[in-house]
Design a protein around this nucleic acid. Structure first.
Lengths: 280, 280
DNA sequence: CCCATAATGTTCATATTGTTACAATATCAC
DNA sequence: GTGATATTGTAACAATATGAACATTATGGG
């Protein structure tokens, strides 16, 4: 018998025993996780057919989850499902009700990013990054998440990507030239260091791509291209999710432009990973 | 055969023929409407027993609704139900012969995060982080963005937050004790290093909080609490935006729990920034 | 009241279900 | 290799499902 409560979801059920699953049982688990209604509606034969195994294997799977048969497991799943159906919070019907405001703000910001970068807008930002000899990344402390995402992603598709730590501005700057590009992040409470560093880059002839939250940002006047990002608040902090998303879209576009160069690079990295067995 | 489309709800179905229902059929209709899962889950006998009638009456009821048997009616109800059950993020895939637009996939994943962490779910994840003496953060190369966001955010609200770099596992591990918590990130192509390191933590009695993409993840069995995150693809890469968002929600909740401690800490950091004139 | 007809219940054939016991196969330590 | 063990598939069975033909009961107009 299963020790877990009556309201345990399918995922939790599977999770509890995920380590001791045999190969076929794992396939069964994957199937029922991918299509949750299979367990609730399907018969043993249905499942066996779907997974491509025999009926007893399905029953044994149910046993391993802690039930004394498929029927019992199905009962559990069904009661859990109808339980969720009756709860109003699980709005399966229409989203007509009041959605929590935080949710709207976040969704809005994400949508805004997708809107802003539709069509050719990403390309405008990506173009200099594609062409650049070296790509510098510059950010304040609060917008590091985006910078970090950009750095690691961009490194996958091209070489010469370098992040600027707050202290090493000086040494790094001496390497920068007019064929380079700097991507600068800064948001509302604009940081002096970032702004001044960006200016130095600009003066050195480096193309400046700015990611910021307002046309009034000090970065905008320095920038050759720039992009506005809405920064929603999550609790006491600013969310970097929109920035991260933007960076990822940018990376994808750069990869697309670089075409073979990028894929070759990715393939090499992948091959290296395979060889050193980093994956399970 | 029924003339209505495949997505007609149960209520519409009975409404269409409500005028020509016999008394017992009407009772059946009432029962079915009162408890929608009856049709989806129950057998003919179940329903007959519930309504207090004979099995053939149920079949005839199905016929009157326009189906050629109970089985067909049940299929209809089930497909309608599973359609409604599937969250918007999944609905996209099911519709798709054409590849779903990136926008929807991303929005879906973001919504899924917000759904998954509704109610008290975040609190469950946050609680150990609040209580912990030290908080370790562990992640593979591809999920660094989330780890980074968590590290920098969490450092704002509490002390003793430490990230694990891939090389310094050994030294760091010797410091970890049973009062600590480790937050582990890993997604689909699960990395050997992360899994083994997590295991070492778990064996040392450290509370393991896992952020991963499937209950079948190797992290789940080690975890005391875990959280499932959908990882959408952006171009050739996986997006970390959902993970980042999740981390930020987590941080906000930890901050809320720590209340005064956190605000004091934030104030001190802010004051320091002011004094060193980091802002413009 | 009586009959025609609608409504419902009973019985049964057939198919399919879930389950168990057993055989075959693959896996792995030695 | 070889034997022990774990994993999966096959065959058999009792129980149950559905749907159809038939029997029964209720209903309402003449």
């Amino acid at each position: 018998m299963n020790i877990m409560g009556p309201d345990t979801s399918t995922s939790d059920l599977v999770a509890a025993v995920s380590s001791e699953l045999t190969p076929t049982e794992r396939r069964i688990a994957e199937a029922v996780l991918a299509e949750p209604t299979l367990l609730a509606f399907g018969t043993v034969s249905d499942l066996a057919g779907r997974v491509g195994t025999s009926r007893p294997s399905i029953v044994r799977f149910a046993n391993k989850l802690g039930f004394d048969g498929y029927t019992t497991l199905q009962h559990h799943v069904r009661s859990d499902l109808s339980h969720r159906l009756s709860r109003p919070s699980e709005r399966i019907r229409s989203d007509g009700k009041t959605a929590p405001p935080a949710r709207d703000v976040i969704n809005g910001a994400i949508s805004a990013v997708l809107d802003a970068l539709e069509d050719g807008r990403i390309a405008e930002l990506a173009a200099p990054v594609v062409r650049a000899e070296k790509v510098w990344i510059l950010s304040g402390e609060t917008s590091q998440a985006g910078a970090h995402a950009l750095h690691s992603g961009l490194s996958m598709v091209r070489s010469g990507v370098r992040s600027l730590e707050e202290h090493s501005f000086g040494t790094a700057l001496s390497d920068a030239g007019p064929c380079d590009v700097v991507v600068v992040f800064d948001f509302f409470r604009y940081r002096r260091q970032v702004a001044t560093a960006a200016r130095v880059f600009a003066d050195a002839g480096v193309t400046v791509v700015a990611i910021t939250d307002s046309p009034l940002s000090p970065l905008v006047e320095l920038a050759d291209t720039w992009c506005q990002i809405e920064v929603p608040a999550i609790g006491p902090f600013d969310s970097s999710a929109p920035v991260v998303l933007m960076c990822e879209l940018l990376i994808a576009d750069v990869a697309k432009e670089l075409q073979d160069d990028a894929t070759n690079r990715i393939d090499r990295i992948e091959a290296l990973w395979e060889k050193t067995e980093v994956f399970l």
